[in-house]
């Protein structure tokens, strides 16, 4: 059984009340992230919060996932949307990669698979980082008891994001602007905790665009009602309009 801080349990309770669905915890040893929530959709009886067992406290990871879900359920019914993609950004991404460097015939064979995985990764970042940053700021401000767990969790998160800088298949690498969301997140974390996580992104030439994204983040209203606009504004900055749609959430 998971041992959670009372603050984390309260957040889970809030989500259950707002969404009228219970949260079921599911341990998955092979989960690539420490926690992930699958919202109940199309009549499913409960939300599923998957978690990977860890020696570190899972409170931050669970609170962040629940916090992101809470922000959607704070909206009135009819104003709740799911982020969805039909893969339409793949062609655009492929063109950008082809234009950025000469690709050997060997790497050309790897290109379709590489494009697919970068496309998926880029959308995941676009969807989760800006709203995740809103949740992080709120958790840090509202729950002093959770700050150590937040610091530890952010350190692990930043370590994972920095590891993506080394992402490559053959000689193919993602377009540098796709590191901007992670750069913005590193800058945000440095500002919150006084750390130095943004240094690798500066070295990789991704900091300037990260700063632009952070400016958008700061200037946009912080209320959850503006979450969709925030994601859309980041997408415009990154040239990712049309890569995804917002579709009505079906409880």
């Amino acid at each position: 059984m998971l041992k959670l801080l009372p603050e984390t349990k309260n957040l889970v309770d809030q989500l259950e009340q707002l969404s009228h669905r219970p949260v079921e915890f599911m341990r998955i040893d092979s989960l690539p992230v420490l926690a992930s929530i699958k919202l109940a959709r199309n009549g499913a009886p409960y939300h599923i919060l998957q978690y990977r067992p860890s020696n570190s406290p899972l409170d931050y990871y669970i609170a962040q996932q629940v916090g992101i879900a809470l922000r959607m359920f704070e909206q009135p019914e009819g104003q709740r949307f799911d982020f969805s993609s039909d893969g339409s950004g793949e062609k655009a991404l492929e063109s950008i990669i082809k234009a950025s460097a000469r690709i050997s015939s060997e790497d050309m064979g790897l290109l379709p698979m590489f494009v697919k995985s970068v496309h998926q990764w880029a959308l995941m970042q676009l969807r989760s980082i800006p709203i995740g940053m809103r949740v992080d700021a709120w958790l840090f401000e509202s729950f002093p008891n959770m700050r150590e767990a937040i610091k530890e969790g952010l350190a692990e998160q930043q370590q994972m994001n920095a590891a993506a800088l080394g992402m490559s298949v053959g000689k193919l690498t993602p377009p540098s602007n796709q590191f901007a969301p992670a750069a913005a997140y590193a800058l945000f974390t440095d500002r919150l905790l006084g750390t130095s996580y943004s240094i690798p992104f500066k070295a990789a030439g991704a900091l300037e665009e990260g700063i632009e994204l952070l400016v958008i983040f700061d200037q946009m209203q912080h209320s959850s009602a503006y979450d969709i606009q925030l994601v859309d504004a980041w997408a415009r900055e990154l040239g990712m309009q049309g890569w995804y749609q917002w579709i009505p959430y079906q409880p």
Binding site: Q158, G166, A204
Partner: peptide, 18 residues
């Protein structure tokens, strides 16, 4: 704070910094 480790492919390094 734990040590932080990362790698940057050579061709990705921003040469303007040097």
């Amino acid at each position: 704070m734990k040590p932080y480790i990362f790698s940057v492919p050579l061709r990705q390094f921003d040469l303007e910094l040097l």
